Simulated assay, not measured.
Amino acid sequence: MTDASSGKGALRPIELPPPAEGPALSLHEAAARRRTTREIAATPLTPAQLSNLLWVAWGVNRKTGPFGAPGRTAASASNSQEIDLYVMLDAGAYLYDAAAHRLDPVAALDLRFGAIGHRQAVRSKAPVQLVYVVDLHRLTHTAGFEEPGLHDPEVQKSYYFVDTGLIAGNVYLFAAAHGLACWFHNCDKTSLTNLLALRPEQKPLFAQSIGWPAAADR
């Protein structure tokens, strides 16, 4: 099976424009309109829309947060920031570098198909697929509270599942506020582990599709 080492050099990092507030619904209106929409058009997002989406999802919102690490737009256990956000576009797969607000190339392959689980029987056309990957090393080597649970596999699950949900919730509200479609779902964990050349301590968890509603294909 092909892995991320093939063709990576064909991609360049994507320097995202600075996140900027634009016209959007209020938080109350966005919460009222939050919903799952599986029918998503192939129309790509603009660089500005992608930039704002990623910043709202899991960006840096203050230089110094808990335990001296940068603060993020979503909370994490002991500020471990153990969730990596992989961004699947038609041109290839990237890893979101929140500190630099940049997309770093991972594989020059369209891996969006891997962000849909086999049993879901849906072939998404979404232009952006986010894949949530936990890095267990960051939980066990946190700069925050060294509680025993951070080394217990079952307790770790409770942390990284909740932390993923917090990021995904930000994405849902961003989508609702800007008239986008959004769908949080399972992913092909086996394929993504190989195709992204993940380390043993990294595990794909879930994915999220974002784009314009298919009925509003532009």
Rank of each mutant, 00 (worst) to 15 (best):
A214S: 03
L89N: 03
D84A: 14
G211E: 05
L54F: 12
P23E: 14
H118P: 06
V106Q: 09
D104G: 01
L11I: 12
H151G: 05
K8A: 08
P66E: 10
L85H: 04
R218C: 06
P148M: 08
L89M: 07
R72C: 05
P13S: 02
Q129E: 08
V133P: 04
L173G: 00
L180V: 03
G144L: 06
F145V: 15
Q81R: 14
V155L: 14
H151M: 10
Q81N: 10
H178R: 12
N170P: 04
R119Y: 15
P19Q: 12
P19T: 11
T142M: 07
A42F: 09
G114Q: 00
Q156A: 10
Y94V: 03
A20H: 12
A93R: 00
E146L: 11
A74P: 00
A143Y: 08
V162E: 10
S209C: 08
L85R: 02
E154F: 14
G165T: 03
C187P: 03
G59A: 08
D217R: 15
G179V: 01
A175Y: 00
A115T: 04
D97C: 11
P105F: 03
A176P: 02
L139E: 00
G149C: 05
A176D: 04
D97G: 08
A100T: 07
V131D: 02
K203H: 13
A74Y: 01
R138H: 12
V128L: 09
A69M: 13
D3S: 14
P13I: 00
H178K: 06
V60H: 02
H28G: 04
M1T: 12
A115Y: 00
R123M: 13
R119E: 13
I14A: 04
P127C: 06
D97T: 08
H178Q: 08
E147D: 14
D217Q: 15
T193Y: 13
S5V: 14
A108L: 06
Q49F: 06
